[in-house]
Every structure is written in C-alpha cells, then in structure tokens.
C-alpha cells in the first residue's frame, strides 16, 4: 500500500539520491547527496537501496506528517528528532504512526541531515537520477503542503519495555566537528603553484557564506599560480581545489560545472568530501596531504562499514518481517556496464 508524507515545514529540503553519474559525460554536474556516507547510511538504516531517493535537509528546521505508518531513519549532522512529540534517536530506524509529525530541529555542528523512508518515494528522474539540478531547472520543489508519495507502509515496531532502544546496530557514526581536517591529494597542476602550494597545508581557512553545493569558498592565505598562460577547458573532478580569485580558495563539490579552465591545485578525497559537505560558514578547515592509495583505502574502509551495517539491517529486518533491500545480484548492471 502506498501512502504519503505531507510537508509541513520544508525549511531547505530536497529529494535527492547519490547523484547523476551519467551527467558529466553530457555536461551536467553529478549533484546528489553532498554527504554521501550519511545518505547511504540513512537508506541502509531504512532498509532501502543505497541510491534510493531520500530527503536532504540543509541547515533549517523541517517538519512533515505521515498519512500512513512508515519507517524512517535520520542521519547526518547532530540534531533534535521528534516523532509525534517523542524524542527519537538519530542513526537508527524509527517507526512513525499514521498521523504523527516528524520534526527535525536544531541541526548543529554540521550542516546537512538526511531522512530516508522505508520503500522510498515516487519521484521523477533525469538521466537515471532524481537529484535536483539548478542549472537545468530539474528537481522536485518541496513546499508547505506538498504530498510526497511513499511506496510502502511499515507497521510500527515497538519495544514494549520501558522504551529501551529498539536496535543495537553498533554503527560507527562519523564524528562532526567545527574545524575538520580535510585530506587532499596533489592536483594534476600542483607544479604550477611552485612553493606557494605548501600554503594549503599551513593555513587555517574559514568557510565563506557564499559556499553552496557547487563549491565551498574558503578565506585564508592563498597559493598563487606562477604561470600566466591560458588553460584549455578540461574536465575537473568533484573535490578539485582551485584559486580563481585573489580573495578565496574554491573547493568544487558535487554541483560543480563539469569543465573549467582553472589549474587544479589539489583534490579532496572522496571521504573528506563528506566532511566538507558538513562545513558551515564560519567553520575553520585545514588540509592534510595524503596519497591516492591511502585515500582509496580510507574510502573502502567506510564502504565496508556500510556493508556491515547493511548485513545487520538485512538480518534484523528479515527477522521482523520487513522487506529488506535487494541483493547486489538483483540490481541493474553496474554503472558503465
């Protein structure tokens, strides 16, 4: 049976997924959840596929009412979650009864939170993704009163004894901080910055309020390109660090234009991009140099942690009779196949 979630207070929320991976080849940014780890964790905790559509909340409070019983999971930055007025834990599956209001208040330390709903939503997609694209004007607008269609209902799961925690999932939650250390690898054009490249690792940068999903702008001592020759436009990866002006460092995030003509000083690792997604204006950021091999290992460790969580959830949900997500061999072919 399908149901719906009525948005009562949208704050700054969008329906998104892990991104439009086919976009860049067509000149569209990948977009999608900026904190990929938190987004994947939310979907896994809700018994969904990693890439299922979910809600991304940025900074502002959010409320919605469920018209049917649903199971949700909230991850991302620390916040206060209440369901029907009861305080509920983050980073755990939470039952919501028909008619109850889910409220997220006081997102703090970080910037973004994720709400996944078991069975996910029915939403339009573009090139295989529901992620909003502000340039093309694609994406669902969540306004007050908007009914978000859900694909499943889930009878409430209750713990009859003293409201003890329902699940012991033993998930390692990522740490959230106001002064994250961001791992980067040398960019392909690092040599063009000469010795000034080292400023990146000795400076504390402050996140500017002009930062968004396209890129973070950071104030501080800036490395300077030693050449003046024009650069032919070329594809730039998410995480590319550029110095486009004399005022700020630009760290491209998932909304970045796919091609640009600025030299790439360094590239933020996949795992650290999640940390940057949580950096608020005013937070201080410092950079640490790493290698691609090390960054790959760190990323894989995080993925394995999520795999472990997925196994646990599949077991628990299986025992509870909640339909678990598909297995890998039931999924459509891997991207690029």
């Amino acid at each position: 049976m399908t149901g719906s979630l009525i948005i009562l207070q949208p704050g700054h929320s969008v329906v998104t997924d892990l991104g439009r991976t086919r976009g860049p080849a067509y000149g569209l940014p990948v977009n999608g959840a900026l904190d990929q780890y938190s987004a994947k964790a939310a979907n896994i905790l809700a018994g969904n596929d990693d890439n299922d559509p979910l809600l991304e909340l940025t900074a502002l409070d959010f409320r919605m009412r469920a018209t049917t019983d649903v199971l949700i999971a909230v991850t991302g930055a620390p916040l206060d979650l209440t369901v029907g007025g009861r305080e509920c834990p983050q980073w755990e599956p939470v039952s919501v009864r028909a008619g109850e209001v889910v409220a997220v208040r006081g997102i703090r330390t970080g910037l973004r939170a994720y709400i996944a709903v078991h069975g996910s939503f029915t939403v339009p997609s573009l090139l295989g993704s529901c992620a909003p694209d502000t340039v093309v004007g694609f994406g669902l607008k969540l306004a007050e009163g908007f009914p978000l269609e859900t694909q499943k209902t889930t009878a409430p799961i209750t713990q009859p004894h003293f409201g003890l925690p329902l699940f012991r999932l033993d998930l390692t939650k990522p740490a959230f901080t106001t002064n994250p250390v961001i791992d980067v690898t040398d960019g392909p054009d690092v040599a063009e910055f000469g010795e000034t490249a080292d400023l990146l690792f000795t400076t504390q940068y402050t996140v500017s309020p002009r930062s968004n999903h396209i890129g973070l702008r950071l104030g501080g001592a800036l490395p300077e390109r030693q050449l003046t020759s024009e650069v032919l436009s070329r594809g730039v990866p998410v995480g590319a660090i550029e110095v486009p002006s004399r005022e700020e460092l630009l760290v491209l995030h998932r909304g970045r234009g796919v091609t640009a003509g600025y030299p790439v000083l360094a590239v933020v690792t996949s795992r650290s991009l999640d940390l940057l997604a949580q950096a608020r204006p005013g937070h201080t950021v410092s950079f640490r140099k790493t290698t691609v091999a090390e960054a790959t290992a760190t990323h894989r460790t995080a993925c394995l942690e999520l795999d472990r969580l997925r196994n646990t959830i599949n077991t628990v949900f299986g025992l509870l009779g909640i339909g678990a997500g598909q297995r890998w061999y039931e999924l459509s072919p891997a991207s690029g196949a």
């Binding site: 690898t185 040398d186 960019g187 392909p188 070329r234 594809g235 730039v236 990866p237 998410v238 995480g239 590319a240 790439v264 590239v267 933020v268 690792t269 996949s270 691609v292 960054a295 790959t296 990323h299």
Partner: peptide, 10 residues
C-alpha cells in the same frame, strides 16, 4: 596520465 583525486584521472 595524472592522478586527480581518488576517483578520477586526467
């Protein structure tokens, strides 16, 4: 062939 982070090559 240049490394461009842990998820891309130029």
């Amino acid at each position: 062939i240049y490394e461009s982070g842990d998820a891309a090559l130029r």
